[in-house]
Structures are given as structure tokens and as C-alpha cells.
Design a protein around this nucleic acid. Structure first.
Lengths: 396, 396
DNA sequence: ACGACTTTGTTCGAGGCGCAAGCAAAAGTC
DNA sequence: GACTTTTGCTTGCGCCTCGAACAAAGTCGT
């Protein structure tokens, strides 16, 4: 089968290369760009013109003179277009509009259960996108792409959920197809924990190339960034550590049908259940957090023990992938340092010195924004990729 | 600091791109190459000429005619140059010369302890390279690159060992620098298990993008290929699973100073020691293998139990990284299916169905060649990279 | 304040690379 | 044996990038 013909040389082929240098938002002068890329000043000028015409970058005043004519600086024009990031949870969905720098412009949260099925949820996403954009005095045409995080395994390349346990009607549904039909923009879909990992990495650890993001909430999962790239595994279920068995829970049944799963011991509901069994009145993760914040000793102890249980599993993970950062996120992590303390206690004691020497274990900084942020970054990453930019330059 | 100027447009810039299509050794006609790359036939012709002049490819007779003039076929010329692959073990070193297709042309094994220090070992490597090449009627000038696997953690980017426990004198030694000084070729250095993983993947699983290679020998370690790339972790110690703690061995002391390490229970020496304690006369891994092959029930049982112990750790690994293949290699795996059976028993029982559904757990096919092969592939990968080829075309 | 110097930004001609078209050669097909 | 098909090579053309030259806009020294 013949490869598609190149679009017969329209536009400036190298413009995207230059754009990648400006993506991080840092202002650059022409001279800097020429020096970094090794291109001639004249070439840089031509390419900048193309990007300026697309409105993707804009001049940002003058730089400091070094004895001659002061250079003009150029930087990414964050408000040229927008992307949409969506976090679909089991019972709620959150949508956010962000600009090209990944700054959240507005968000909306709605109690829409994922079990309502894809048409309903995606319909809400499409409608909310339009409404939020209207509030910002922008058109839906300004959307470059949409990133969506779903609470189950997703085949990222096709954007289709695969055998999701808690998403009836979603199995193998063509999410990007539906979105494209409705909004005319590409959609990037991934597991919710994966997008949280992406969000956290971009916000707090842009230079870290090996990190593990652990979400502790109703369930327990992790997103793996290894060698600078998100690792999804062979079937897209990498990082799904909620059902690793640990000793302490040999007698505890998990909703998955097995016994001793991490999730059956250290998730929000599991901690609450254990407390309830010893006479503490907690029914939800929220109440648990409240109790911990009030300084309830039993609640704090239970959370810390959950941290130890998670640490047990993370010990092997640390040894296996040797990350430089572990981030603990999810609603249970909002209880403060107690969960973290439990994790640290076990991981630092049980892992090899080599692996823990340069390891930090920290709380999520992106917190409840991690998912929406990550979904936006995922979309941005696609929309501002060299190929996409080249496409925009070509049709100019 | 100004970026290095481009070599002022000598040679054919796109030749390397074409070469990558021919790297796998499959013969191609001009028409095929033009169709695959989307380039004009004339352009393909020019680029082929450049590669032919470098002797990197050669015409391989005629292809089947489809009604017109039969096309000539071109393929990688495997014997144009050679690469060297070296496996440095604790007590022995093995060196191999391979051609550009990764076929081993000759090998040599020598009882040289790594503790002799870098000058002695690298000196042996340099001398052996020259001698082996002389036997093949080739000059040391034909070497494109050298790949070296060392029995300890290595910072791959710089080729320097970092805090290696069993390699006195090697810490932070500039291996590539020394080799380049002596032989004038680039050296790629990595952990021995990592190169075994590379070797196994290239030989047996070229299309697998997520796999775990586990070496069970004097120690236990693993090489991780995730998303198609070898993962080395933040400090280059990823995959070092020998010192993960497992329950069964809580009372067993490991040479690392801890208790219950996997390596203290399931490595070759550990199995032998356990058998010795119950009255079986085994002192080495070799004797252990012999006993197993003779059908000794106690030896078989011990090996199978070691497999279960390893499986215990791999269960978490499988869940975390979701590979499609786990390969068991190393001297202990030569005992046949018994080790594998133990691993499978635990992994398939304890991991989530999602992760094990498409998972194969197999014995190493590269076996004792894995390391030398992998080291060669590592070197080949560098030497035949687009950048290297472009360099060769430029100076033509 | 003024001129020399430095650095920036733009324009223009030259050269290289890739494409398309055209043509000869080497087969298969009737 | 003539026609068709496909390959392999040559030629002219267009686009892109480079380097040089020049104008513009500052700084620095006197």
C-alpha cells in the first residue's frame, strides 16, 4: 500500500521544530532561537513569521540589550486557543477549560454517574464545553483538542475502554469518534490515574523522568512515568496495584472476589469499614478525613496503617522501577501527612539503599486538579505536537 | 553557548531514513522503498547510491517480475562491518564478534575476575577483540562499536559504574573513554541483566513492547523493557529485584545484611545451600542443575519452590507494568521447566486476570548467548542510528 | 550631545535537495 | 517479434535554507 503523498511542500516544514522550543512558555529572542537550533537568523525570521501569522506565538516586549539593539522577545501565546480536560469519575465528572500553557480558565463539576453510559456522559461533556466557552466569550472552534480520563482501563491508541468493571455500556465504545462527530476536535482518552500522573508531573515535577503517582481514594491505582514517558503496559492496565495481595489482609474479602487485596485494606471505604468495626462512626471517606483532621487517634492510626500497607506494595515497585519521586494523591491523601508517614515508614525501611537514596515520597501538589490538568496536558501534548503544528502551518 | 554548526550540507541528509528500513535485513526493491517512504523514485536512487558507496547495503539479485523488468533487490550488507559484544561476569568474561545483522561470528570465554579491575578486564577485551578479528581475517578498523555488560549498576549515559558492590576499582571508571583511547571506537555500557533483556527481545520477541527478563543465577535481577524501550530508572538500578523481601525467608540472612531477600532464597547458591542443609550434597549451581536433570526429587522440589518465591515478587511486577512476556533466564533456568512451573503457578494464581490474560511466561531462548547478543545489539543500535549513519554519509 | 560600535532585523542571490517528467533498457506477454 | 510493463537514470524546476549585505535601533565613550 503506498504511503500518503506529502502535501507537496506548502508552508514551512521546520516551523514546528522552532515552536517546540517555545512551548514551555519561556520567552526567547531570535538570536537565542538561532543559537539553539543552529539555523540561520534569516531562517528563524521566516519561521517566526509563519508562527506569528497562526497566532500561536506573540511578541512579548523587548529583552535586555547587551550593548547593541535590544532584541524583541517571543513567547507562546497561551490564549490563542484552548483545550478541554475532563475527569470522569464513578459518580461525578469534572470538566475544565485550559489555555495553551495549561492554566485552568474555568471548571465545572456535576454529579453524573459514569454508569449512565457514554452518550449521556459525553453529551454532558460536549454541552458543558460549549457553555463554559461561551462564558469565556470564546467559540467551540477555539478548542484544539479534548483530553478525557475514565475510571477504568482504556486502550489509549484507540481511545476505547476495555472491559471496564464499573462502566456499563462503555466497553469498546469509540469515544474519540463520538467526540469528533459532535465537536469536530480530536479526543485523547486515558485511564484516570494516568492523567493524574501526567498532571502532577507537569505541574510539580517537569524534570523528573521516573515517577510513580499513587491515587488512594475509593480504589487504589497508580500511574507510571518511566524514562519520561507514561507507561501503559501491554493491555493498558499497568499500574493497577489495587489488587496486589498483602499479608495483613489474608482474611479480608475484596469486591473483586479475591482475598487480601491492597484495595480491600487501604482504600477510603476500607479504612472507614475497619474503623466502623471497632466502633468508630464513619461511613464515608469524607467523614474519615474530617475525623483525622479533628485529631481522632483511632482514625489517624488507621490511615497510617493504610499507608504502611500501601508502602508494602510500593517497596517492590520502587525496587523494580527505581523512580526518583513517588506522589501520593487521591481523596484519602487529603488527610495530611499521616498516610504519607505510613508509606515512608515502610518504603524507606524495606527497600534497598540504592533505590531509596534519591527517592522523595511526597503529597500531590495538584491535588483535586490533577486529573483535569493531566487531561488538558494530554490534549495539549497531542495538539501542539510537531505533526499537528506542521499541519496547521501547511493549511495556513 | 552556540550549538555546533551543521556540517554545511555534505552528503545526502535523508539517506539514514532509508537505511532504517533496510536495517532488519529484509531485501527491498527500489519501488518498495519509494512506496514506503513516499519519496520519488529518483530520490530513492540517489540515496541508495550513497549507501551502496558506503558498502552498508548491497544488491541481492533480482526480485520477481510482475510483468515488466524485474527489479533488483537491496539489503543490509551484514558483513560490511562488525560490532563487539562483551559480557563481564563476576568470575568470567565472554566476548563475541557479531556482524551487522546481529549474527555471532565468533566468541571467546575466559576466567577473568571482574575484581581484577577495569584496566585488566578492558585490556583483555581490547586484546581479544583484535585476536578474534584477526582470526576472521578482519581488522580492528572494521569495528563499529562495542557493547559491554557489567555485573553491577551502570549509568548508561556516561558508561560509568555507580557504587558497584562486587567490582572493586570500577566505581565511576570511564569505560567508554578507556575503550575509545585504546580501540578508537565508541563503547556502550550497561548492566548485564539489561543487555540480556535486549538480547532476548531482539532474538525471540522483536515485536513485544513490554517484557520482563529475569535472570536467576548467582544473584537475581531483571531487565525491564516497557513501551518498547529499556527502562533503567532514575539511578540505573531499575529491575534489581534480588533484594525484595518475601515472607518465607523472614529468618534467612542475605549477604546484603538484610533478612528475607529473594536472592537469599531463590538464587542458585541459595537453593544449593538449602538442599545441603537437608543432607543433599550440592555445592554449586552446576551440581544443582545436574541433580535436577538426573531427576532428583528433592532438587526438583527446591527449584520449583524457588520458582514460587520468584513468582511471588513477579506477581507485583506483572500488576505494575503489565508486560506481555516474562522471560526466565540465567544459569538456574537451565534446569528445565521446573523453575518456570513454580513461577507460573504463583503468578497465574495471584495476579489479576486482566494482567495475566495475554501474559506468557517462558524460558530464555537466547540462553547463554543472551548477554553477548544483547551487548552487540546495544552497540548496533547506537552505530546504526540515524545520527551515526548521517555522520558516515557526510564524510563519505 | 554626538559619533563609533554593537547587535538586531530584513532582503536578496546562490546553492542544495527533492520532485516530476522524460527516456532508454530489460524483461514479460501475446 | 512487437507491444506492454517496470525499472533505472538524467534533466529541468521549485522550494527551502544559508550567508552576505544592508538598514535600524540601541549602548558606550568622549
Amino acid at each position: 500500500m503506498p504511503a500518503p503523498k506529502k502535501p507537496s511542500n506548502v508552508g514551512l516544514p521546520g516551523a514546528s521544530e522552532l515552536f517546540q522550543l517555545l512551548r514551555n512558555g519561556q520567552p526567547r529572542t531570535r538570536a537565542e532561537l538561532a543559537s539553539i537550533t543552529g539555523l540561520a537568523r534569516s531562517t528563524v525570521g521566516l519561521r517566526l513569521d509563519a508562527l506569528l501569522e497562526l497566532d500561536l506565538i506573540s511578541p512579548i516586549g523587548e529583552g535586555a540589550s547587551s550593548g547593541g539593539r535590544p532584541p524583541s522577545q517571543f513567547a507562546l501565546n497561551p490564549s490563542a486557543r484552548v483545550v478541554v480536560g475532563v475527569d470522569v469519575g464513578a459518580s461525578h465528572a469534572t470538566i475544565g477549560i485550559t489555555d495553551l500553557s495549561g492554566t485552568i480558565l474555568s471548571t465545572r463539576r456535576s454529579p453524573i454517574p459514569v454508569s449512565d453510559g457514554p452518550e449521556k456522559v459525553l453529551g454532558w461533556i460536549a454541552a458543558s464545553s460549549r457553555e463554559l466557552l461561551a462564558d469565556l466569550d470564546r467559540s467551540a472552534r477555539d478548542i484544539l483538542a479534548i483530553g478525557i480520563g475514565l475510571p477504568g482501563p482504556v486502550e489509549h491508541d484507540t481511545g476505547r475502554p476495555v472491559n471496564p468493571p464499573i462502566m456499563p455500556g462503555w466497553d469498546d465504545f469509540d469515544v474519540p469518534g463520538w467526540i469528533h462527530e459532535e465537536l469536530g476536535v480530536p479526543a485523547l482518552v486515558d485511564n484516570d490515574v494516568n492523567i493524574m500522573a501526567i498532571g502532577e508531573q507537569n505541574l510539580a515535577f517537569p524534570d523528573v523522568r521516573d515517577m510513580l503517582f499513587v491515587k488512594v481514594a475509593t480504589g487504589i491505582g497508580s500511574g507510571i512515568i518511566s524514562g519520561g514517558a507514561l507507561q501503559r503496559g501491554a493491555q493498558g492496565s499497568a499500574g493497577d496495584i489495587g489488587h496486589v495481595r498483602i499479608e495483613r489482609g489474608a482474611a479480608v474479602a475484596c469486591h473483586c472476589g479475591n482475598y487480601g487485596c491492597l484495595e480491600a485494606l487501604a482504600s477510603g471505604p476500607a479504612i472507614a469499614r475497619q474503623l466502623h468495626e471497632v466502633g468508630v462512626d464513619v461511613a464515608s471517606t469524607q467523614q474519615l478525613i474530617a475525623l483525622v483532621r479533628q485529631g481522632d487517634v483511632r482514625a489517624i492510626g488507621a490511615v497510617r496503617q493504610a499507608g504502611r500497607d500501601i508502602g508494602e506494595v510500593l517497596t517492590t515497585c520502587v525496587t523494580l522501577m527505581n523512580p526518583s519521586v513517588i506522589v501520593i494523591g487521591g481523596s484519602v491523601s487529603a488527610a495530611g501527612e499521616h498516610l504519607l508517614a505510613g508509606v515512608r515508614e515502610v518504603v524507606y525501611q524495606r527497600s534497598t539503599p540504592m533505590a531509596t537514596h534519591h527517592l522523595s515520597i511526597v503529597q500531590s501538589r495538584a491535588a483535586e486538579n490533577a486529573a483535569v490538568l493531566g487531561a488538558s496536558i494530554l490534549a495539549l501534548h497531542h495538539a501542539l505536537s510537531p505533526a499537528s503544528i506542521d499541519g496547521m502551518v501547511a493549511v495556513r
